[in-house]
Design a protein around this nucleic acid. Structure first.
Length: 213
DNA sequence: GCGACAG
DNA sequence: ATCTTGTCGC
């Protein structure tokens, strides 16, 4: 798929992203992340499901497939979503909430990887990124749980959250089927002692461990 | 034309 | 993302 075609598709899909809360009882929360092998030729998707409350991991899947696209800022989902879907198809049951490594609507066309994946799965998703793609924000307060809005023009597209003291903040944005307040609440609830919430932290770890799964 | 730019 | 050891700090 060429870049121009992908961008057109984003403009067509973005309006379908639901920013209002539409989630039932949450019992299973999934964390997703993608890694690469063979110098990037193989894409490895990792999904870890944790039980709520308690956050104990109860299921995990690693799925590998040939890489389809190069990394292009703004088009990350076209590179990662296919493999992520492959991993989700192997779960014994779908989760009630999904936390994705990357942006949700905090994206130039409001369709980051978390939103794109949420649309495909028709599940509530939250984007948790380690750095900024777009938008602007002021300084972030220093207390754990503090946050400042991430804005693009007159629109609030996410929040910059201090998930841990003395550590770079994380960028939280709604993916699909929920608003910013709800997204932030879940991320904070899933915070352990590290910068990333447990779901994506475990998925990150699994996706980075080569020769496993 | 000149930067910025998730993973 | 990935290539990579030790090392500074809480």
């Amino acid at each position: 798929m060429d870049p121009d075609e992908a961008i057109e598709l984003q403009y067509r899909l973005a309006p379908q992203v639901e920013r209002r809360d539409r989630l039932g009882e949450v019992h299973r929360i999934a964390g997703v992340d993608i890694g690469f092998e063979e110098e990037g030729d193989i894409t490895r998707a990792a999904v870890v499901v944790l039980r709520w409350p308690g956050l104990e991991p109860v299921e995990q899947v690693v799925h590998r497939e040939p890489t389809r696209m190069p990394y292009i800022p703004g088009l990350l989902s076209f590179r990662e979503v296919p493999a992520a879907l492959g991993a989700f198809s192997r779960l014994s049951a779908p989760p009630d909430l999904v936390m994705v490594d990357g942006q949700g609507i905090a994206h130039p066309r409001r369709l980051g990887v978390a939103s794109h994946l949420g649309l495909w799965l028709d599940l509530p998703t939250i984007g948790i990124a380690k750095s900024r793609l777009c938008g602007a924000h002021g300084e972030v307060p220093t207390q754990r749980g503090d946050w400042t809005p991430l804005r693009d023009g007159d629109e609030t597209i996410g929040a910059v959250l201090r998930s841990r003291r003395n550590v770079k903040p994380v960028y939280v944005s709604p993916g699909h089927r929920l608003g910013l307040e709800t997204a932030l609440a879940w991320v904070v609830r899933c915070l352990g002692r590290t910068k990333l919430p447990e779901p994506t932290r475990l998925a990150d770890r699994l996706a980075s461990q080569r020769g496993k799964g």
